[in-house]
């Protein structure tokens, strides 16, 4: 295919001399994007549009949806549980981000060393990421059982305990992944910087704070965006560990949506929550990209 594309490109260049042949050189044919575009359209755009449409109807999963105007949206903005869910979601995102960043930064920098024991341990650390979140949640649910588990007391029965359990279990699963990102980032830092610092008499900690950390700025942004967008969709962990409880204290927005849809069978309202979540998550990631300069990221090696 690439041959015909090149041929086509050169011919079109000949036919239309004003167009620069260089602009298209090396670009894959647009048709190559077709499967991905179709896939995205069928499995992301179409369901999203349908869900948005459903949010203006009343539907219990049987028969045809009945138009309901803005009733679901009105209910959404008057629902006290949405406010609570949003607070919990934001809190969970921030705390997870802080916890995972600190641990995976330290682990990643440590694992960047080329010693053999570090390589072996890094491989071991990576294992949790290979397990499914459902399996991990079930495992921790059993470990946290108040009568037969390993933790004394009723961790999941208290608001703080349940919240921290979700943060910890999420971290346990995703820290290996972010460790890997930081490990890669740390290995990219040129050795000469450390050599120069050593000559200047900088110790191990000074080197970490003055070279490693600033050099990992872009890595931290990448991993941070992934963490924040990821924690908006923590769902299995909440479903299995706490079911939103105690009471409704850990019911994050995705769980609220699940409850409305698959427990109350109020698919109209569930779609309104889902549409809201899509808008909120998109706005948040755009904001993050803008604030962090992720879009216009510049090389950390400038001037070297």
């Amino acid at each position: 295919m690439s041959i015909s594309v090149t041929k086509g490109g050169s011919r079109s260049g000949a036919g239309r001399p004003r167009r620069s042949a260089g602009a298209n050189a090396g670009r894959p044919h647009a048709a190559l994007a077709l499967p991905a575009v179709l896939f995205f359209a069928f499995f992301a755009i179409v369901p999203m549009v349908l869900a948005f449409g459903l949010s203006f109807t009343k539907w219990n999963g049987l028969g045809n949806p009945q138009p309901a105007g803005l009733a679901n949206w009105q209910k959404l903005f008057e629902d006290g549980r949405l406010t609570q869910s949003l607070t919990v979601t934001v809190l969970l995102t921030v705390v997870s981000w802080a916890f995972q960043t600190v641990v995976s930064l330290l682990l990643g920098v440590w694992a960047a060393g080329r010693q053999r024991n570090r390589a072996i341990l890094s491989a071991v650390f990576f294992v949790p990421f290979l397990l499914s979140s459902t399996a991990i949640s079930l495992l921790f649910y059993a470990l946290l059982d108040p009568n037969f588990g390993i933790m004394p007391g009723d961790t999941l029965g208290s608001t703080n305990g349940a919240f921290l359990a979700i943060v910890f279990v999420g971290g346990w699963q995703f820290i290996p992944f972010h460790t890997l990102i930081y490990q890669g980032g740390a290995r990219q830092i040129p050795e000469v910087l450390y050599q120069a610092a050593a000559i200047d008499g900088a110790g191990r900690y000074r080197q970490f704070f003055s070279i490693t950390l600033p050099q990992l700025r872009n890595t931290a942004t990448t991993s941070g965006v992934l963490m924040i967008v990821g924690s908006l969709t923590y769902f299995e962990t909440v479903l299995i560990l706490t079911q939103g409880g105690p009471g409704t204290d850990t019911a994050i927005v995705p769980y609220l949506m699940y409850e409305a849809g698959f427990k109350s069978y109020d698919f109209g309202y569930a779609s309104a929550i889902a549409s809201f979540l899509v808008v909120a998550a998109t706005a948040l990631s755009l904001l993050l990209v803008r604030l962090s300069g992720f879009g216009a990221m510049r090389s950390t090696r400038e001037g070297m």
């Binding site: 594309v5 086509g8 011919r11 077709l34 179709l38 069928f42």
Partner: peptide
């Protein structure tokens, strides 16, 4: 896409149609 009228675009559109047809077949 603008290049559909040109010679090169001929290849393009045929490929496009073939690709689209194949994808449709797979989907169907």
């Amino acid at each position: 896409m603008e290049s559909t009228t040109s010679n090169g675009g001929h290849t393009f559109s045929r490929r496009w149609v073939l690709g689209a047809a194949a994808t449709t077949l797979v989907t169907a």
